[in-house]
Design a protein around this nucleic acid. Structure first.
Length: 269
DNA sequence: CGAAAAACCTGGCAGC
DNA sequence: TGCTGCCAGGTTTTTC
């Protein structure tokens, strides 16, 4: 479910817990994408959170002695709840309990996961990640270095977190629409000018999505319960058969790498 | 080696 | 009303 803008929105919503004490953690279901380690509760008890941050689609709690890594998978979300709200929702798998409130981890499909890391940068899920798309490391020159030697289609390349992080199925379609690049283009055929259009477009799209709290298609809500409004600014994703907002050609849907992909066959070449 | 396909899950919805 | 099949904001593992 959540791509970079949704994760970033979630991190901002829970940022008020940085500089506070994580009193305890409760894991109700350890069988997530990977098994939550048995001593997770013990290793995270009564520690100050020094910072809450995002890396790629991961949410990081920087504790005194250790780091907690959360991934929301396809269907995960966090929500802030009062400690004395003793109701559970289906698929509430973990609770991070503070003085008055708690952060509840909910994930119906359990594609998400919860980890501990001593040294964040050395964690297996973190160490091979590509550059942040909103950083200066995601630029035409660096992207072109990668595209030049790959025969994969550009959409799949953008969704591969080794190349650039945070871009998932929605924002890959949207970025390429704005860049006017056909998602099926073979990466090695792209010029550096086209890579420039892609990096600029992706940054623009992601920033615009963050600004309105991400995209809520059906069930994404930020930790404070608010939906994201970028759905109303989508130009390609989910618009199969509707007119391209630029040229009125009907938007096409194809399947690339088993993922629905939307584009304008006239604007994008 | 790179690229494609399978795997991990649950829920909602269309169609019969 | 079921029941079936398909689809869904992801990423790793397996296979070719």
């Amino acid at each position: 479910m959540p791509e970079l803008p949704e994760v970033e929105t979630t991190v901002r919503a829970i940022n008020k817990f940085s500089q506070s004490t994580l009193k305890s953690t409760k894991i109700h279901n350890r069988n997530l994408r990977w098994k939550v380690v048995e001593n997770f509760e013990l290793l995270t008890k009564n520690q100050s959170i020094n910072k809450i941050s995002r890396r790629a689609k991961y949410i990081i709690f920087h504790l005194d002695k250790i780091n907690i890594i959360l991934h929301l998978g396809m269907s995960g979300s966090l929500r802030i709840s009062k400690n004395n709200d003793n109701f559970f929702l289906k698929h509430d798998h973990a609770e991070f309990i503070f003085e008055e409130e708690k952060i509840v981890y909910n994930d119906p499909r359990r594609f998400g996961s919860i980890h501990l890391a001593d040294k964040l940068d050395e964690h297996r899920l973190i160490k091979n990640l590509g550059p942040e798309p909103l950083s200066k490391d995601f630029n035409p020159k660096n992207l072109h270095k990668i595209t030049a030697k790959s025969k994969i289609n550009i959409k799949s390349l953008l969704m591969n977190q080794k190349n650039v992080v945070g871009i998932g199925n929605i924002y890959a379609s949207e970025s390429l629409y704005l860049a006017q690049i056909n998602p099926n283009r073979i990466a090695s055929d792209l010029s550096i000018e086209e890579c420039k259009k892609i990096t600029q477009s992706a940054k623009k799209i992601l920033n615009a999505a963050i600004k309105v709290g991400g995209t809520t298609l059906k069930d994404f809500y930020s930790a404070d319960g608010s939906p994201g409004y970028f759905k109303f600014e989508l130009n390609a994703y989910g618009r199969e058969g509707l007119e391209c907002k630029k040229c009125k050609t009907l938007i096409t849907k194809v399947v690339i790498n088993t993922r629905a992909t939307f584009f304008c066959s006239s604007c994008q070449s």
